[in-house]
Design a protein around this nucleic acid. Sequence first.
DNA 1: TGAACTGTAGCTAATGAAGTTACAAATTTT
DNA 2: AAAATTTGTAACTTCATTAGCTACAGTTCA
Lengths: 140, 140
Amino acid sequence: MAANSQFAMAVHILTMLAASRDKNLNSSYLAASVNTNAVVIRRLLANLGQSGLVISQTGANGGTRLTRCPNEIKLSDVYKAVDCGEVFALHGKEPNRDCPVGRNIESVLCNLQKEIDKGVYEKLSQYTLADVSELVDCDA
Amino acid sequence: MAANSQFAMAVHILTMLAASRDKNLNSSYLAASVNTNAVVIRRLLANLGQSGLVISQTGANGGTRLTRCPNEIKLSDVYKAVDCGEVFALHGKEPNRDCPVGRNIESVLCNLQKEIDKGVYEKLSQYTLADVSELVDCDA
DNA sequence: TGAACTGTAGCTAATGAAGTTACAAATTTT
DNA sequence: AAAATTTGTAACTTCATTAGCTACAGTTCA
């Protein structure tokens, strides 16, 4: 269970919301589609809400809806909203500073990490939620 | 401890090996630079060896060395050698097949995942171990 | 008032990485 | 031939993280 599937779940539920823009969807309904627990969905929606992608309402007939059009939500926005970490992790423990390589490798890797992450981000920014919705419908 | 730093460690020890191409380096020596246990290094070297990047010798004065020039080892080769998984994970549990979105989202995400991973791979293939060695020395 | 929601705290279970000890097998040195 | 060194690998522990679950206070609608 250690693999972080939050991005996948986020795209899933946002696609659901995109298909029902006129009404609120509640967390139980979304959870049933993702096949998980409603609290997992609510935690995810909390992140998406903080990034301004969705808005939730408490109370009866409450639920969540998108704040803007699916074609205005880039997948990079989603990626940023859920905290997925980096493509690869740096050293867990600091390398040995008495070794020339150990002393300098971290900064080199850190720059590389940033560049790779930027590439991922740029690639994801080429797609919107509307693109995903279309693909999902096509396959249906 | 759950963040996978094998790529970072792999680049680290390969840089060490690149700086000592004429002789074997043993796992204790490498472990001291990475600041970890020798067995962790040997496990990593086993992966790198299976991908043909390094060759190890048992016995006294044994150890590990590169099989080819640092400028012939792309960072994408390293990424492939250590099993770092994907940029983002797909659903842990299969989504609900009774829902149109649940039924089709996985294949859409899977294709996206492949494309993103390919982008990472291409970006990493632009750098070699020789580039890393140079950067590490420059900083020193 | 009562029903239906979200938001969130707090717990358990499952997974995976890293760290450690131990030891057989291989190889070199003496 | 014996001793020393080193890899390869199994087995275990520890730690961090994700996901799943229950419970409940607070909000909103009818």
